[in-house]
Design a protein around this nucleic acid. Structure first.
Length: 193
DNA sequence: CTTTGGATCGTCT
DNA sequence: GACGATCCAAAGG
């Protein structure tokens, strides 16, 4: 897994992210649902109307984390993809909880079942304690010799993406609803509702 | 099980 | 000044 793997089209990179691990501190989950956002050509993307202070990370190099705040209370996390200068991203919509479940439960007292811990884009940020301070983090910083351990990381544990991912329309948007740019691991309990 | 409405504030018009 | 890449509790069936 290298930075070049993230330079492709978001519709290609997003399903490729399935089954990779998202790690933050002692908590980790397997990505089981994603959505592709196509930057300036995609009316549903935050970057559709060009670069703003909020969306600047999306215009930077791929393999970084774009975190945004919405509805006055929720954080959501994206993997920046596409070449530098082009805004594209994959929204992480759901994780299968893998490690640090006790801390996840502490961070998300509203979750009743294990699958409720990370089955939504804002839920997984709550569970992994991802917030605005993580915006712009380099997801590939592991093994680069610097201070590693506090940041958000993407890890390939060897599990390949599903050969035939399930596919459907994106959720929660009001434009661009015709594009079937949502991908998930078929039969996974932790996909969003 | 499904439907509905409230919470809450940064961002851009 | 409007609205959003959402979540949750409450109410109804």
């Amino acid at each position: 897994m290298q930075r070049a793997d993230f330079e492709g089209d978001p519709v290609t990179v997003a399903p490729w992210l399935l089954n990779k691990m998202l790690v933050h501190g002692g908590q980790a989950g397997r990505i089981v649902e994603v959505e592709a956002y196509g930057g300036e050509i995609d009316p549903a993307s935050h970057a559709y109307r060009g670069q703003t202070p909020r969306t600047s990370v999306m215009f930077g190099p791929p393999g970084h984390l774009y975190v945004y705040f919405t509805y006055g209370m929720h954080w959501c996390a994206n993997v920046v993809c596409g070449p530098e200068g082009q805004a594209a991203a994959a929204l992480i919509r759901a994780l299968e909880p893998v490690r640090g479940l006790e801390d996840m439960r502490l961070a998300r007292p509203a979750a009743r079942k294990e699958r409720d811990l990370c089955n939504g884009p804002a839920k997984l940020c709550q569970a992994l304690r991802i917030s605005g301070v993580d915006n712009g983090a380099d997801l590939l910083a592991a093994g680069q010799g610097s201070v590693v351990g506090g940041g958000v990381l993407l890890v390939d544990d060897g599990t390949p993406p599903p050969k035939r991912p399930a596919r459907g329309t994106r959720i929660g948007i009001r434009v661009g609803t015709e594009k079937r740019w949502r991908f998930w691991v078929p039969g996974q309990a932790s996909v969003s509702r």
